[in-house]
Design a protein around this nucleic acid. Structure first.
Length: 1114
RNA sequence: GGGUGGUUGGCGCAGCGGUAGCGCAGCAGUCUUACACACUGUUGGUCGGGGGUUCGAAUCCCUCACCACCCACCA
């Protein structure tokens, strides 16, 4: 006999079952099993950073995914939950660089060099990377670990390269010199999305400049504005021609407001609004820049220009134009052909061009310094405290610098198709959110043209929300839903104003841009053609390599640009690779290399300076440029249509069903995945997107290391158990709202598990010991019960003590010799009540799933299990268990088993470990066929609510429900009565009941047990209580608490009067409503009736109380 | 500046047109033979302010206030 411990101890249970699931391949998805009867369900994990460790955010996110996956398995779907990690360029490189620096191995990344550093990062990744995936196991995540992917897996890299070449060929990727967000901390360009605005306190500096006129010398008619003196190219030096201009002071001063005085040396104009009457007359004149002071005035002359961009309300209405260091200014510079002076180094220090006073200083030090310089020169008018928004690098947390640099940009593909493809997801009435799909639509089969998608949207807006928008359309091409749907607006807004994406990063860790350039001294076209022939000879298909001749500077020869999605496994590509690494050209002159051609080529290329070698672009791609392919690149996508159409995984599981992620990456990731999905798969990447909230502490603050308010989930798991953490977090996480995390909620989860544990223990004790050890009975297979599926699903645990008094095997009157069969004729009102509650709970939880309202589901589970099952049903069942009627006991056990068997299954997605443990130790697993719960509860069928047939089979009518409910109500009233009469709650007292209708002895006993009464006498209408006996009454009858000689009449009078007052006020409320002539006239009949009933109800109570009051002796 | 979400008892939330509910916490009892990680009972709210629609409003509309987040090149 196995004794269940008094308290649930999760630790050993959790590791045991996780190992069991894992080793038995329970998480493994097999596309071959997908069929009409077994639809596919898929989720791809939002890949955590490979450097990541588990946070509460991950717990929230992955618990939801796990719940969805487990529910889908119980629904009989073939489930793929695909895990993996992201290489996370900047973050990972930073981590490893820091580690190396800390260890004193390097001072700077250059100490190692590119190849060595990347090798070290790989080393680090192999050793420490993906810890988080291991941690997810502790949480119970049912990921298909056999399919774990990394965004820098060779196959994945090939996808990235392929996509790059594809986009390039489509003309969507281009290289250009643009203003980008430059991170002086990480020394790389960033996308707009990686910049977060922060309010910063600083100063608005007002400084004066003198307006001058320039008198051109006849000798040199140079335009001072565009003059070489202010040339962009420092190598060409200051333009001496300016010196020949005479400066004529005007005595007029302009005051300029700026927050960045350190950029004054980089100003190349001063702008005013052309409509600004204050300054119109100055347009075309010049000013002398205030800085740098060590440059002669003549060299600091900049023009006053007119530009609409200038807001004359702001500051002084005069804008200093710094094309090198401000996006808007750069635009102005372009419009007015202004020169660009860069005074900042990549790491944010002032260059020599900023003047001797500032050169070498950090930009923020220089800001103060330049203010001082202005002040010293008498140019500073004032400095006012000022708060403005400054863009920060999300990763490095330093202010970014707008910086002109040469980068790769992407014009987003499939934008039109991706726009407005999201429909409202609120209504639960619509198509099932968890889309059932038979064989998934593969690439090419689906048509997601913009028109049909937009049409779907229009239909919804046209007043038919919730109707399946894609109905009639190509399967798989219907729209996507966001939960909560308000994010669709955010998505639409972003899609509407979409800007080209800067995809190159000046880092070493990542997907290196698959572009090589080869400067030539000969005709590019000729060489290009030669090369194409060459590749042809090698057998390299043209789609693998793209060759073009690009424009070069006039004094140089042509440059050839190659793009290739190289495949190292491919012999031809190996040649290609070695070819591009031109330094190794000679080494490649071995067998198979067409020597003649090679020589020609070598001559063509190498007949020049050594610098003229093919070099690969040094930059890597933005991490998101690989993650946006995640839904299909993880499934073995190749981009080759015929190959992909034969890929069972892709065919079965793409598009994925649900995506669970945070709204903070809606642009970074979600939107881009949608575009990528349309572009390369011809279909959206997922049907539903669930946006989690953000985890905050109980004061509503974001979790952060510095605040120390972010508990380690693993600590919580070891302290409370994974189920407890899951349940706690889900309870606290309503759809669409941030989660205020309090450890207390995990404690509550633990208590809940413990309660569940003990509820099962109670069942074990009633049935005797040894449930576990009992072999399964052959005849206990599903399919023998009367009507229906759900009854058939009801597991009936093997009774331990076949034949004993406590056993469930007492033959029931149905005539079946099935153990634990519920005999409907023996069901008490309590039994029927709990079955109805169970039914209701199953309905609610199932609906909550359909709506993605997991906190609703947990609330229902909590209520049903704790408040209804434990507090009432189990307590009531003790009447039978303490009694002597074995038939009744057996039937009671059958009901309990039925309820627990369903309960465990409904709980399983939320509490996978404890439910699995109990499923087995209670013997439920022995009841079920191997594939439907016999082996693991994971594949047991999700409980269904009762059908009408089943309800009538069990005679689950409202009457029984009402009786049980009234019984419990009366118990509550009686307990309160005991308190009101100042009776020690522990004292067992005698009650007397006068039932309003017939009341079987068993019911009376239940009532007695619930009241924990010493006795409960049933009396008839002829019985008269002693005057003033405290009484409570409801529809069930009147309950007296005879207190011979103990009644405090005065106290009782007070109590009753108080009660009467309350009732009177309720009556008054209803009456006044009914008295309103408008009310009776306008109100629906149902409401009117309901009010009248309520009134009658209160009045009846009033009568009872009044009678009691009247019976009190004077 | 624009947008979104929120404002219901001490805390966290539900209710979204017809008797203001739940869970924690609090308070008072109880080691009642599943569970003190429990049980029983119980105190707290004119639903942010104002206006409107309605027989009736926490619930719909308008407006204001505050909080949070997102977007936006105001130097």
């Amino acid at each position: 006999m196995i004794e269940i411990p008094k308290a649930y101890e999760p630790q050993s249970v959790e590791s045991k079952w996780y190992e069991f699931w894992d080793q038995n391949g329970c998480f493994t998805a097999d596309p071959a099993r997908v069929s009409d009867a077994r639809p596919a369900y898929s989720i791809v994990i939002p890949p955590p950073n490979v450097t990541g460790v588990l946070t509460l955010g991950h717990v929230l996110n992955n618990t939801i995914q796990d719940i969805l996956a487990r529910k889908a398995r119980m629904d009989g779907k073939e489930v793929l939950w695909l895990p993996g990690t992201d290489h996370a360029g900047i973050a990972t490189q930073n981590v490893v660089e820091k580690t190396l620096k800390k260890a004193g191995e390097i001072k700077h990344r250059d100490d190692l060099g590119r190849e060595a550093l990347v090798a070290r990062i790989w080393e680090w990744k192999e050793k420490y990377g993906g810890i988080i995936l291991k941690q997810l196991r502790a949480l119970g995540a049912s990921c298909d670990w056999t399919r774990t992917r990394f965004t820098m897996d060779p196959e994945y890299s090939r996808c990235v390269q392929k996509v790059f070449v594809d986009l390039y060929k489509k003309g969507l990727i281009y290289r250009g010199k643009r203003m980008v967000n430059w991170c002086p901390g990480s020394l790389t360009a960033l996308s707009d999305e990686e910049v977060t605005m922060k309010e910063q306190k600083g100063f608005m500096y007002y400084f004066r400049v003198e307006v001058v006129e320039l008198v051109a010398q006849p000798a040199s008619a140079v335009d001072p504005a565009g003059g070489g003196g202010l040339s962009t190219d420092p190598g060409e030096g200051a333009c001496a021609t300016s010196q020949t201009l005479a400066i004529k002071p005007t005595g007029i001063f302009l005051t300029i407001a700026t927050t960045r005085p350190e950029t004054i040396p980089a100003d190349t104009a001063v702008a005013v609004n052309p409509k600004d009457p204050r300054y119109q007359h100055l347009i075309g004149k010049h000013v002398i820049k205030a800085l740098p002071l060590d440059v002669p005035k003549e060299l600091r002359v900049i023009p006053i220009i007119a530009d609409e961009h200038v807001d004359f309300e702001f500051g002084t209405g005069v804008l200093k134009v710094t094309p090198a260091h401000d996006k808007a200014d750069y635009e102005i510079g372009l419009r007015h052909k202004l020169p660009v002076i860069d005074v900042l180094t990549p790491d944010g220090k002032m260059t020599a061009e900023a003047g001797a006073d500032l050169a070498g200083l950090d930009r923020f030090v220089a800001r103060k310094k330049s203010a001082e310089l202005l002040e010293a020169a008498g140019a500073l008018e004032k400095a006012e405290p000022y708060t403005n928004n400054v863009g920060f690098s999300e990763r490095a947390d330093v202010p970014i610098e707008p910086r002109l640099s040469e980068q790769w940009f992407l014009k987003y593909p499939s934008v039109e198709a991706s726009k407005a493809c999201v429909v409202s997801g609120t209504g639960s009435t619509g198509a099932p959110p968890v889309a059932d799909r038979a064989l998934a639509v593969g690439a090419g089969a689906a048509q997601a043209d913009g028109a049909s998608v937009v049409g779907a949207r229009a239909g919804v807006e046209g007043g038919a929300p919730g109707t399946a928008p894609g109905a009639g359309a190509v399967p798989g091409a219907d729209a996507m839903r966001f939960y909560p749907d308000r994010w669709a607006k955010v998505y639409d807004h972003w899609m509407g104003g979409i800007q080209d994406w800067c995809i190159s990063r000046q880092l070493w860790w990542g997907h290196r841009i698959p572009v090589w350039t080869l400067p030539l001294h000969v005709s590019g076209n000729e060489v290009a053609q030669q090369l194409r022939d060459y590749f042809k000879e090698w057998g390299i298909p043209s789609e693998y390599v793209f060759i073009e001749v690009i424009q070069s500077k006039p004094d140089c020869g042509d440059t050839i640009r190659f793009l290739t999605s190289s495949d190292e496994a491919d012999a031809a590509s190996a040649k290609l690779n070695s070819f591009f690494q031109f330094g190794k050209f000679d080494a490649s002159l071995h067998e198979g290399f067409p020597t003649a051609h090679a020589k020609d080529l070598a001559r063509a290329i190498m007949d020049g300076p050594a610098a003229h070698q093919a070099t690969q672009d040094p930059d890597v791609l933005d991490t998101w440029f690989s993650s946006w392919l995640w839904p299909f690149a993880t499934m073995g996508w190749t981009g080759d249509k015929s190959q992909d159409s034969k890929n069972p995984t892709l065919q079965a599981f793409y598009p994925t069903t649900d995506l669970v992620t945070g709204p903070d990456i809606i642009f970074f990731w979600v939107a881009r995945m949608i575009m990528a999905g349309y572009e390369w798969m011809g279909d959206l990447p997922f049907r539903n997107v669930y946006f989690t909230g953000i985890i905050r502490d109980k004061q509503g603050r974001k979790m952060s290391k510095s605040l120390g308010n972010s508990p380690d989930p693993l600590d919580l798991i070891s302290q409370y158990g994974a189920d407890a953490l899951r349940f706690g977090v889900m309870r606290a996480a309503p759809l669409g709202q941030d989660v205020l995390f309090d450890e207390q909620t995990v404690e509550l989860g633990r208590n809940f598990c413990n309660k569940l544990w003990n509820a099962c223990r109670f069942r074990q004790m009633q049935g005797g010991a040894g449930l576990v050890a009992q072999p399964p009975s052959a005849e206990l297979v599903v399919g023998q019960t009367p009507s229906s599926a759900s009854v058939q699903q009801a597991p009936r645990p093997v009774d331990p003590e076949n034949g004993t008094a406590g056993g469930a095997c007492a033959t029931t009157s149905t005539g079946d010799d099935v153990c634990g069969e519920i005999d409907p004729t023996l069901l008490t009102s309590d039994d029927k009540w709990i079955l109805l509650r169970l039914d209701q709970a199953i309905r609610e939880v199932t609906q909550a799933f359909a709506d993605y309202k997991f906190s609703d589901a947990t609330a229902t589970l909590y209520r049903f299990f704790w408040s209804e099952y434990c507090d009432w049903y189990v307590e009531a069942s003790k009447a039978a268990f303490y009694g002597t009627d074995d038939t009744l006991k057996a039937n009671k056990l059958a009901v309990i088993d039925f309820v627990l068997g369903h309960l465990l299954r409904v709980f399983h997605p939320f509490l996978p470990f404890i439910t699995e443990e109990l499923w087995h130790s209670m013997g439920f697993s022995k009841e079920m066929p191997e594939s439907q719960g016999g082996k693991t509860i994971m594949f047991a069928a999700w409980p269904k609510p009762f059908t009408d047939e089943e309800k009538s089979y069990f005679q689950l009518d409202d009457a029984a429900d009402t009786i049980a409910q009234a019984k419990y109500d009366l118990v509550v009233l009686a307990r309160a009565l005991k308190r009101d009469c100042n009776i020690d709650p522990a004292k067992r007292v005698k009650f007397v009941v006068r039932p309003a209708g017939p009341m079987p002895a068993a019911e009376v006993e239940v009532l007695r047990i619930l009241l924990s009464a010493e006795s409960l006498d049933v009396v008839g209408s002829d019985w008269q209580p002693e005057k003033g006996t405290p009484m409570k009454a409801n529809a069930l009858g009147e309950l007296y608490l005879p207190l011979t000689g103990l009644i405090d009449f005065a106290a009782e009078r007070v109590r009753l009067t108080k009660e009467l007052e309350k009732i009177a006020s309720e009556i008054e409320k209803v009456q006044s409503k009914l008295a309103n002539p408008n009310f009776a006239q306008k109100v629906p009949a149902k409401v009117l009736e309901e009010h009248q009933l309520r009134l009658a109800d209160w009045q009846a109570k009033e009568g009872q109380i009044q009678a009691a009051l009247a019976s009190l002796p004077e």
